[in-house]
Every structure is written in C-alpha cells, then in structure tokens.
Design a protein around this nucleic acid. Structure first.
Lengths: 206, 206
DNA sequence: AGGCTTTTGTGTTTTCTTTCACATGAGATT
DNA sequence: AATCTCATGTGAAAGAAAACACAAAAGCCT
C-alpha cells in the first residue's frame, strides 16, 4: 500500500474495473487475470496491475485476482462501502434518467432528495421522492447530511445552484450543465457534458 | 497548420472552447485572450494557445483571438460546419433528455431518427420524430445517411445495438450504456457513463 | 520432487501532456 | 518615430501516464 497521491486517471478506471467485476461475480466467476480484464475493458494488463498495486497486493501470482475480494477492496478504496447521500438538482428528463439509478444499483450512493425550481414540478413524485423547491436546497442538504450534488439544471442556473450547494457544505459535485462551474478548491467537481463528447466525436469522422 | 496526429486530449478541449466562445459571441464580445479563456475554463493559457496553434495561427499578438473567426475555425476543425445525421437508439428518459438537444442547438449535428425496441413506445413522438422499431435500424441508418449513433439502451442490449450500427456502416458511436462495447477500429467510440463518474467522485470525499 | 506454465508486482523505458519562458510582432501612447 | 504594453506562438523543460519486460511465486503435471 502506497501513500503518495493517486492520479486522477487511475481513480477514473477503478469504477470501470468494479463494474466489470460485478458482472463476473453475477456470472459466478471466481477468478480473473489482468489479461482478461484488459481484453474486456480495452486496457493494457500492466496498467491494470499497476493501478491495483497502488492500493495493495490483491492478486496471486500464476492465478490472478479473486473477483469477490477485489470487488470488496475497490468498493472500499472508492468509499462505496459506506452510505453517501446525494442530491439531484433539476427534475427534467436528465434528472429523471439519473434518478432511476437508485433502482438499479444497490450501492451506497443514494439520491435522497430531488429539487426543482419550476412550481408545477414541486410536489410531484420521482422514484418515491417528492420534488422539493430549490429554495429548500441549503436547509435539506444540511438536514439530510448530503455530501454529493448532481446538477441537471440549465446552464444559466448551474453556477447559482453550485453556489448554494457549496454554501450548504457539499463535498463534491457532478455537473451535467454545459458550463464550467466555479467552486472552492476543497469541493471536487466533475463535468459530464455530453454535448462536448458529441462534438469531439465529429472530429474523427472522415 | 501541422499535419501530425492531434492528440485526443486536444480534440476534447476544442468543444469546450467553442461553447464558451459562443457565449462570448452572444454577449457581443469581439476579442478574447488565452488568459481570459484559461481563467474561465480552468486551463493553462499556454495550453490553449498550443492547442489552437496546432491548426493555424488564429491569434494576433498583443490583441488575442477574434471571437467570431475562432468560432468559425473550430467549427471547421471539428467538422461541425457540415450537416451530420445522428441516430438515437433507446427512447427512455436519457434518450428523451438527449433528444431535446436538437431544440437548443442549431448546429450541424442533428438527431434525425429515434429507435426503441419496446412495442408500446414505437409510433410515439419524441421531439417531432416518430419512434421507430429497432428492427428498422440498419435500413434507416443507410437510407438517411446517418453517420453517428447515440446508444441509450440498457447495458444488456448495447453490444447488440452497436453491432447493428456497425453493420449499417456507422462511423462513430457515443455510448451511454454502462458497458464497454466492442467495435472495429475504424469506428470511433466514446463512452459517456455517469455511474463511473459518480463512483470516482466518491473517492475524493474525506 | 522437479519442471512447466501462468500471472503477478514492479523497475525501467518510452511516450504523451502540460507548463515554462521568451523572442516576436501588433497596436497604443507620447 | 520611438517607446511601451500586451499577448501570441513555440522551443525547451518538467511532469505524468502508459507500456515493456522480467524476476518471483503459485499451482499443475508427470
């Protein structure tokens, strides 16, 4: 187990390993090698071994990795073995799509509150959660000890929502709005903007 | 103008520049420097200059970049100055969210066909497009000269859909399903999976 | 029991990406 | 016209990430 800083690239791959390992576990496969992982995930086996070796010696020479054990370890590394409350701000189609996430994945990150500014939406149910007015955002985030916010509001509102989340003491934000939001360095922001993904795809057309 | 291979990292930033430049143009701002861009987009100014310099000398010393001209150039680099037909496969909440994209952005990538496997959904309208049965996928992709596919079906169906897209002669795929899909090397695939984004965020919580 | 095969963990090398730092040129100012 | 200020484009340096290659260990086979 090393203590130096783990690179962002490594951290982004861990959930990909985890997802595939869960598939293997579901199929009752006990063991997997870095080569098999690499083949399935389009990654170099040495890279996978090095990624994992940052956190401990999880494998067995000549055998590979025990699927169940590795799942347990990665879940722990990613802090997915303790409950994390998540807020969703913006109950549009994208918000609805993300809220379904709760139903499919029994892992520890759970959307526990949904907010929207539009009065007509407030009070409606979305996956067993009542949509709350954004005015209650700060209060509820504190009350429910919400640590992560998912922003799915229009770009024009995104920075304002982010400011409120920060004020409420949020630790991390996943932003889907097509704008770079500014937050204090202590708050971690990931941008998930599909329009930029789509536009960069166009570059590779003949 | 250089002719060597442009790195993926550069291509991923171009749409981010473009988006912000469009904001500037909308606000009638004529000129922008790499420093201003860097401040707004959280990037190093030298990196922005180098990114752009790969494609030509777009700036003026002492002045910066002409916003309108730079928009034009980046749109051309990304091939966003010619129409590109896009298919959306999967008319769930996420599919609906992405289809709205057509309404907001008057750029050249347009969703021209939506497919779903579920019989109840077929025939319904989604943003002025009739949902077609997935059985018609290959035929319609060819007929409408669709070059890009967006996959928003469940993971279990994603590879099958990808295979059909490839068979129909698609050039690029944006995959939202939580699985790594396999396609021939000539087909470009970008994975846009929000669950892995969310899980990697958890790592950075205290 | 000894050799064979497999696959890990990692030191080393290579490749890729970012950042620095500065000469150059464009316009503004006096 | 000379000087000043600003911001580009880029060579060089630094830093980060990926890939190579191999010793070491674990189980299997004869």
């Amino acid at each position: 187990m090393k203590t130096y800083k783990i690179s962002e690239a490594v951290v982004k791959r861990l959930p990909i390993y985890l997802r595939f390992l869960n598939e293997l576990a579901f199929a009752d496969i006990q063991t997997v090698s870095s080569k098999e992982l690499g083949d399935k995930l389009d990654l170099n086996p040495a890279q996978i071994r090095k990624d994992l070796a940052h956190f401990g010696d999880f494998g067995k020479k000549g055998i590979g990795y025990d699927v169940g054990y590795l799942i347990e370890q990665i879940r722990h590394i990613l802090k997915l073995d303790t409950p994390i409350n998540v807020a969703l701000i913006g109950a549009g189609n994208l918000g609805h799509a993300l809220s379904n996430y709760n139903m499919y994945h029994r892992d520890s990150m759970r959307i526990v509150a949904v907010f929207d500014q539009v009065p007509e939406k407030v009070g409606q149910m979305i996956n067993n959660l009542e949509i709350l007015p954004t005015a209650q955002l700060i209060q509820k985030v504190r009350e429910l000890k919400i640590r992560v916010g998912i922003i799915t509001v229009p770009a024009i509102e995104a920075q304002n929502v982010a400011n409120q989340l920060v004020e409420a003491g949020i630790e991390a934000i996943l932003n889907f709005a097509p704008i770079i939001i500014k937050v204090p360095v202590k708050v971690r922001v990931h941008h998930a903007d599909f329009t930029t993904e789509l536009h960069s795809l166009a570059y590779y057309l003949d």
